[in-house]
């Protein structure tokens, strides 16, 4: 496993978490819970963006791992 693939795996897990949080935010009945889930989803979104950028960077540095 290369660093690039590890980071990519982490990124996709992150996407999964974001989706799950979004579904919780929609399905919860309690207003507080909805707000917390939504907020967490936004934070995860920011982290995800940073990771995405890092993945692009890694691919540029090590083109042999492109798409792996």
């Amino acid at each position: 496993m290369t660093i690039a693939s590890n980071v990519k795996q982490c990124l996709s897990t992150m996407k999964g978490i974001e989706a799950q949080l979004s579904s919780f935010a929609l399905n919860s009945l309690d207003k507080d819970a909805q707000a917390i889930f939504h907020e967490a989803m936004l934070t995860i979104g920011e982290v995800k963006k940073d990771l995405q950028y890092r993945v692009l960077e890694l691919e540029r540095h090590e083109p042999q791992y492109m798409g792996s």
């Binding site: 980071v7 999964g16 799950q20």
Partner: peptide
């Protein structure tokens, strides 16, 4: 979900 979050957090620290 909590476990996954913890895992991702640990991954980031390792990176």
């Amino acid at each position: 979900l909590l476990a996954t979050l913890k895992k991702v957090q640990a991954d980031l620290e390792i990176f």
